[in-house]
Nucleic acid binder design. Structure first.
Length: 574
RNA sequence: CGGGGCGUAGCUCAGCUUGGUAGAGCGCACGGUUCGGGACCGUGAGGUCGGAGGUUCAAAUCCUCUCGCCCCGACCA
């Protein structure tokens, strides 16, 4: 590619709307153009990176026997009504009407469509399993798009859906996909972690996230450096350390106006972890009381797992009705029998605790669980810094990262709702067992920049760089320099090395700054100084190191360095 | 959805308080000097001041409405 004829325009200005590195650099390097909140064009250079990453994805999925297809972006409402998600998905689903006033949506994901396809074809267990995938534009009307491609509304995603006659078969494919994702990320030069995750709006039972480490990531990941346990903070379990408690006599004490945990703790002179905090949640069907230790938060994702449905905090009026007290004075002791009580492990472990008295301006001290009616002990508190591993009791670490992939065991949620059945060996009709596997393409590429950049610009991993190599004739008025550069450029292309020549009539410094910003892994510098001796320089973007080589050796040397780097990025970093 | 901020040249922004000829830097075009880490000098092109309405002799500036963008928050007792 000739830079002078390519569509690649950089800028010195630091964009005002961008806050994090990948977003700023993508704008400065001329890789994206924003049209609306969370809606972008991918300009040619970035599109090359996206294509390279997509092709790695294809190679690794094809290797596992997955089959590519393409499904519609605009989907009829009927299918979403069948699965029930037309009513559940909420405002993130972009709903549109056609000229006949019929309802459609712009697909945020494709379980409905893929199930509509397969239910028409699947008859027998003999056809199973199979795994279908596509790389396609999705739309999710996010509450607040931000960070450029990291949280866009329109984005490119690889989504795969597998279909099975048995759970065991699903397990097999699930593990295959897990391997494929790991290979994809390794080949693309990511440092990442595979973590247990909550299933969210997609549904299903088991799921894992692929989280690329980044200081500005939106996901919090808990890992155990000793035994390798890793989970999203929304899902992570932790070890509750047994403590010795001194006996405290049961007593109802006045706590006027002290409704928050911190206030009660200060007022009574106790620590927050000896308080039991009681929250009232509501689901579409019922009210639930939830108790956690005062120094902990409820993980709504964990709660969703226990309830099997999304719960939300009840409004003030409901709380007053059920607890006979204003908000802030609920407690498990003496709570109405009408409401189910879930007690987190963290709260259940406290022998003598402080809690709301279900009475205005009063708390109980010295409460014990034998004074509480029926309750169930569950794991619904969020892990936090300083917690210990549920498996090996080592100190857990908390990392920030970007969730680039998420794989789920869906089970029969969609196949039952949408009647995708097959006839099994025993002659009985059964719902197909499904898995689904998402990987954010644009997000991954943005995450790569987030993970690989310095103060000069992007430092692309070789595998997904827009170009592997840039040839830079520094003195465009020197005919030897120009002709040597052109010759090297043709030879590199000949050898299949992805090369751009910076043939623009610009000064040397300008070209250096631009290619540093763009982050091409290798520069071949052709200048008047060295060409006199029949030499050029090769510079590595990674560390700025240079070596002089004879013009006759450049091509083989470049090939050598690039293959070294490709191999390097294959080394597992977990 | 709630709160805050912004919208003026291709980009980043000043001007608005106190109404009166629309500015700077970068970028762009041309000429000259320069030429291995975002050069310098000169000349020049380029703006319905987000949009609509209003007040006024006169509106980028004041008022009303509206659209868009950015940031923070969205209930944990």
């Amino acid at each position: 590619m000739r830079w002078s004829r390519y569509y690649l325009f950089t800028s010195k200005e630091v964009p005002k709307e961008a806050e994090i590195a990948s977003h700023k650099l993508m704008i400065r390097a001329g890789l994206i153009r924003k049209h609306s909140a969370g809606i972008y064009s991918y300009l040619p250079a970035l599109w090359r990176s996206i294509q390279k990453f997509s092709n790695i994805v294809r190679e690794e999925l094809d290797r596992k026997g997955a089959v590519e297809l393409q499904m519609p972006a605009v989907q009829p409402a009927e299918l979403w009504k069948e699965s029930g998600r037309w009513y559940e998905y909420g405002k993130e689903l972009l709903r549109i009407k056609d000229r006949h006033n019929r309802d459609f949506c712009f697909g945020p994901t494709h379980e409905e469509i893929v199930t509509a396809i397969t239910r028409a074809d699947i008859r027998s267990y003999k056809q199973l399993p199979f795994n279908l995938y596509q790389i396609q534009v999705k739309f999710r009307d996010e509450i607040r798009p931000r960070f450029g491609l990291l949280r866009a509304r329109e984005f490119i995603m690889k989504d795969a859906y597998s279909f099975h006659s048995t759970r065991e078969s699903l397990d097999e494919t699930y593990n295959d996909m897990r391997d494929a994702y790991s290979r994809i990320l390794e080949r693309s030069g990511f440092k990442f972690s595979v973590v247990e995750a909550a299933t969210g709006a997609i549904g299903g039972s088991v799921s894992h996230e692929f989280v690329v480490f980044a200081d500005h990531g939106e996901s919090l990941v808990i890992t155990c450096p000793k035994c390798g346990y890793a989970a999203n903070v929304e899902k992570a379990s932790f070890y509750i350390e047994p403590k010795k408690y001194n006996k405290v006599n049961f007593e109802i004490v006045p706590t006027p106006g002290k409704s928050r945990v911190k206030e009660v703790a200060d007022f009574l002179g106790v620590s927050t972890d000896s308080i039991v905090k009681t929250l009232i949640y509501k689901t579409p069907e019922k009210l639930i009381a939830v108790a956690v230790a005062g120094d902990r938060e409820v993980s709504e994702e964990k709660l969703r797992g226990v309830l099997g449905t999304q719960g939300e905090l009840a409004d003030d009026k409901t709380i007053e009705d059920i607890t006979n007290a204003p908000v802030g004075f609920a407690g498990p002791v003496g709570l109405s029998e009408e409401i189910e009580l879930l007690v987190d492990k963290s709260a259940a472990a406290i022998e003598y605790f402080v809690c709301g008295a279900n009475k205005k301006d009063a708390h109980i001290v010295g409460a014990t669980w034998d004074k509480v009616g029926k309750f169930k002990i569950v794991d619904i508190a969020e892990a936090k810094k300083g917690d210990k591993c549920v498996r090996c009791k080592s100190l857990l670490k908390v990392y920030r990262g970007i969730e680039v992939g998420h794989i789920f065991k869906l089970g029969t949620k969609y196949s039952e709702a949408m009647k995708c059945y097959f006839l099994d060996k025993d002659g009985k009709s059964k719902p197909v067992v499904m898995g689904c596997y998402g990987l954010g393409i644009g997000r991954s590429v943005a995450a790569a920049i987030e993970q690989h950049h310095d103060d000069k610009g992007i430092v692309w991993p070789v595998a997904i760089a827009p170009f592997e190599c840039v040839v830079m004739p520094l003195n465009t008025d020197n005919t030897t320099v120009v002709s040597e550069a052109e010759s090297i450029y043709s030879q590199l292309k000949e050898k299949g090395i992805d090369t751009i020549i910076d043939d623009r009539d610009e000064r040397a410094g300008f070209k250096f700054k631009d290619s540093d910003l763009l982050g091409f892994p290798l520069k071949v510098i052709v200048g008047a100084k060295t060409i006199k001796e029949g030499k050029v320089e090769i510079e590595l973007r990674k560390d700025g190191s240079r070596l002089e080589v004879k013009t006759s050796d450049v091509v083989s040397k470049v090939g050598e360095i690039l293959s070294d780097h490709k191999n390097l990025s294959l080394v597992s970093v977990r």
